[in-house]
């Protein structure tokens, strides 16, 4: 196995009855890469992602995530990745500090380490004043930035972000991407889905799923050349009509 490849997927397939939700997808992702995973609603993105994070068994194919096989070592995958979605972020009725402590504990960090991490994280996000405030009362943008930091609390090799910026204001959305760049720059692999096509441009490489298959996979620049499109929105519209 190539150690620079932190995700290796070959012919990965998921069937629900006679419906093929994910149809033999194949790709590799390298260490520190920002990989955009795009597709229309219902194209199979969420199903594919669930298999990669070890919470759904593939019907066939191969996949290796953070060095572990999705068929045999799903539990090890969960320990070695971070995950954040727009829907399940943090516990609204716990404070900022309590959320950090809770997730640190879930990932098996020592009490000392949790304390250290908690201080660093709160300071980096500028949340000192609201450290003891219930997360539910924070603006969405803050929640999402906090949620991202929490998903990195155990220093995972890969972080999976499922529409992390939906509905977030444009300034915070950009601050969020600066956090993504920073994490990638430090060697964390970022696997991200989004419906904002300008964000697709921020990715090192982008895949576009249509009806369960990956129909395109390349750098944004090469995709635009290939589809003779001015921007990623045009690439998406040309492809995803399906």
């Amino acid at each position: 196995m190539n150690h620079n490849k932190v995700i290796q997927v070959e012919g990965l397939t998921k069937m629900f009855g006679d419906f093929t939700a994910v149809n033999a997808i194949t790709f590799d992702i390298e260490k520190g890469e920002i990989f955009g995973f795009l597709g229309a609603n219902g194209a199979g993105k969420t199903t594919a992602m669930k298999m990669l994070i070890g919470i759904s068994n593939p019907t066939s194919g191969k996949a290796n995530v953070a060095g572990f096989n999705v068929f045999t070592n799903a539990e090890d995958i969960k320990k070695n990745i971070g995950y954040m979605s727009q829907k399940f972020a943090l516990y609204d009725d716990l404070t900022v500090k309590e959320n950090i402590t809770f997730f640190g504990g879930i990932y098996g960090l020592s009490i000392k380490r949790i304390k250290e991490k908690s201080e660093i994280l709160i300071q980096e996000l500028g949340l000192e004043k609201v450290a003891n405030t219930l997360v539910g009362s924070l603006p969405l943008g803050w929640k999402q930035k906090l949620s991202f930091s929490v998903s990195l609390i155990h220093d995972p090799k890969i972080v999976f972000l499922d529409e992390p910026t939906g509905g977030v204001d444009p300034i915070t959305r950009r601050q969020f991407w600066e956090m993504i760049y920073k994490a990638a720059n430090q060697g964390t692999t970022v696997f991200v889905t989004t419906h904002y096509m300008d964000e697709a441009e921020y990715c090192d490489r982008v895949s576009i799923m249509v009806n369960g298959k990956i129909e395109a996979l390349d750098t944004p620049k090469k995709l635009k050349e290939k589809f003779k499109a001015a921007n990623m929105n045009d690439v998406f519209l040309k492809l995803a009509r399906g």
Partner: peptide
């Protein structure tokens, strides 16, 4: 009220 939130670019169009 936000009819297109979370909707992909094709369906939004």
């Amino acid at each position: 009220d936000e009819p297109t939130t979370g909707v992909d670019p094709v369906s939004r169009k």
